[in-house]
């Protein structure tokens, strides 16, 4: 009888220890989550500020435009080829690869023969190994049989002599695309992955507490 009581109390102690362990893990996950959330909000502010400057410069370009032309869809090149593409790198972190993929956006300079790797690398995640990135550039993807021309700077769609505010707008939008945008995409994925882990840990704690 005494041994049964002892074993019951031992099981209870083990369960309490396990709950304590899971609670600590949950605290750690929340700490990570709040840190990422802070980064997400900071990047969001950066994106809003950069886009806002871009919109302002674009409005200035339209205002200063001669002949009342508007820099918009009437001038888009219907054969445009992307100069900036996304690379999604699988995460191989020690946390079991559950903290989401990393997103980078890289550019191919116009008329280049080879791709230039000028993408912004998020150094906040040093655990990400050098990935097996796709080695093809926009130029390489072009099918010579279709006669597609090399990628050109989109600002050329609007003529050779474009106003300075349009160039400034292009610089702001490019800054938004290579900077905060991929970081926001990566952070959103990491937050999503952490939400799943937090949910699982909460469930495990509830299950142990009920038992």
């Amino acid at each position: 009888m005494l041994s049964t009581t002892e074993s019951t109390s031992n099981v209870r102690l083990e369960e309490e220890g396990e709950v304590g362990q899971l609670m600590l893990e949950l605290d750690h996950l929340f700490e990570q989550y709040l840190e990422l959330l802070d980064q997400y909000q900071t990047e969001r502010i950066k994106l809003s500020t950069t886009l806002s400057s871009g919109f302002l410069s674009l409005a200035q370009a339209n205002f200063s435009s001669t002949l009342g032309r508007r820099y918009g869809q009437d001038y888009y090149d219907e054969r445009m080829q992307a100069l900036r593409t996304v690379y999604v790198l699988p995460s191989n972190s020690k946390l079991g690869g559950e903290d989401g993929e990393k997103v980078t956006i890289e550019g191919v300079p116009p008329h280049s023969e080879k791709p230039a790797r000028n993408g912004i690398d998020d150094t906040a995640e040093p655990s990400v190994a050098e990935p097996s990135k796709p080695a093809c550039s926009e130029d390489e993807k072009e099918d010579p049989h279709l006669g597609r021309r090399p990628s050109v700077d989109p600002i050329r769609w609007f003529g050779i002599l474009v106003p300075q505010p349009l160039r400034t707008a292009q610089a702001h939008f490019t800054e938004a695309v290579v900077g905060p945008l991929p970081r926001i995409a990566s952070l959103a994925k990491k937050l999503r992955a952490l939400e799943i882990r937090i949910g699982r840990t909460r469930k495990a704690i509830k299950k142990l507490e009920k038992g």
């Binding site: 886009l51 674009l58 820099y71 888009y76 445009m80 989109p154 939008f173 695309v177």
Partner: peptide, 9 residues
């Protein structure tokens, strides 16, 4: 227009 100027189009 802005995003296409950045080269995503």
């Amino acid at each position: 227009t802005g995003l296409l100027l950045a080269g995503v189009g």
